[in-house]
Simulated assay, not measured.
Amino acid sequence: MRVEKLKAGAAELTVYLWEPAAVMPLTATRPLVLVVPGGGYEHVSQRESDPVALRFLAAGYHAAVLRYSVEDGARDYRPLSELSESLALLRARAEEWGIRPHQIAVCGFSAGGHLALSSAVLDLPGRPADQQRPDALILSYPVVTAGPYAHRGSFVRLSGTGDLEAHRAFGLEDKITPAVPPVFVWHTMEDATVPVENTLMLVSALHRAGVPCEAHLFPRGKHGLSVCTAEVGNEMPHPGRWFELAAEWLGEQFNYHV
């Protein structure tokens, strides 16, 4: 394994790469999963960072973690700009690092799920021609709506105000189009921080737009489960099956089986 650290604006991008092996010619290039942790745009969750990336690495993917701007730095679409720049950096290094440039999935958790989905549906101010989009999305208990079921703190930090009208620009369930890439999403019914209605609204919007989607709702589990292991302080084997399901789903999307 090889580790690279890059800067994407004020953000930090940590990349975990498989070294090519002549005896495994079918994996001379690999898809990459870019992990975007949650934290309510207030902090970047450690339990949703490297533990997730290393699981995808073990599943045969290149992996990366984006530590993006939070608190006051979350305003003015800065995290979205940093995610776009990270995707551009990965695609620019694709030949050098053995990344398949059109097989990059973004895996986001909670507010990181909001950021991941934003990268597929929101335009940066000025709509730069080089804005980057993901090829697939894996969303874990994502923040989606700015309406009654909103994780309000996320929208306050994104907009810099408590004005509910200003929050609507960052709500996503009404911005889904057929251009959104395939989506895998999971949530727990007991989530008291980001209500499951966020995912229900998203799945409905994806279905209406004809976007391929696989969704899993688990009956038990609090918010922030990450990979549901003792390592992250949330050992729950049943919802923990999300990872194997997501890895299998992604392999089907990219026709990648190792």
Rank of each mutant, 00 (worst) to 15 (best):
R93D: 09
H187G: 08
H102L: 06
I138V: 15
F218G: 11
L164Y: 07
V203L: 05
L13N: 07
F56H: 11
S69V: 00
P79Q: 02
Y61C: 09
S69L: 00
A136S: 00
T229H: 08
A120S: 10
F170V: 03
A74L: 05
R30V: 04
S84Q: 01
R220W: 07
I104A: 04
N255M: 04
Y141W: 11
H238Q: 13
V44Y: 06
L13G: 05
R220C: 03
H216E: 10
M201F: 15
V70T: 13
P128G: 10
D50K: 12
L164P: 10
E85W: 02
V194T: 14
L206P: 05
E235M: 06
Y256W: 14
G224F: 10
L83T: 04
L17F: 07
P237W: 11
S49G: 15
L137C: 06
H114A: 02
S140H: 06
A21Q: 15
L137E: 08
A215W: 05
L87D: 03
A92E: 14
L57I: 06
V121A: 04
E96L: 13
V65H: 05
G162I: 04
L139P: 02
A22V: 13
H167M: 12
A92N: 12
A94D: 10
P142M: 07
L57Y: 13
F155T: 06
R168S: 14
L117T: 06
T188H: 11
F184S: 05
A21E: 14
L13C: 08
R47Y: 08
D76C: 03
Y141E: 07
L57A: 14
T29A: 13
G126Q: 11
L34D: 04
H167F: 13
A179H: 09
A58F: 02
E252C: 03
T199N: 04
S118P: 02
Q46M: 03
E235P: 15
R241E: 15
H238W: 11
H187P: 08
A169Y: 08
Q132Y: 02
G126L: 12
G126C: 12
V194N: 05
K7N: 12
W97I: 12
E19Q: 14
R220V: 12
R30Q: 05
F218R: 11
L164D: 14
P134C: 01
E71K: 15
G126S: 10
I138F: 01
A111F: 08
R55V: 13
P219F: 04
H102D: 15
E248S: 15
V15L: 07
G162S: 12
Q46E: 15
G233H: 11
G160R: 09
L137H: 05
P125Y: 10
L89N: 01
L17E: 03
L17P: 07
F109A: 09
E12T: 14
L90Y: 01
R157C: 00
P25G: 09
R91D: 05
Y256C: 01
E231N: 09
A8E: 03
I99C: 03
A246H: 03
G162T: 12
E96K: 15
A94W: 10
G171Y: 10
G171K: 00
V15T: 07
H207S: 14
Y77K: 03
A179E: 12
V65D: 06
P128R: 11
A120D: 00
G210D: 06
K222S: 13
Y77M: 06
A53W: 12
A136C: 03
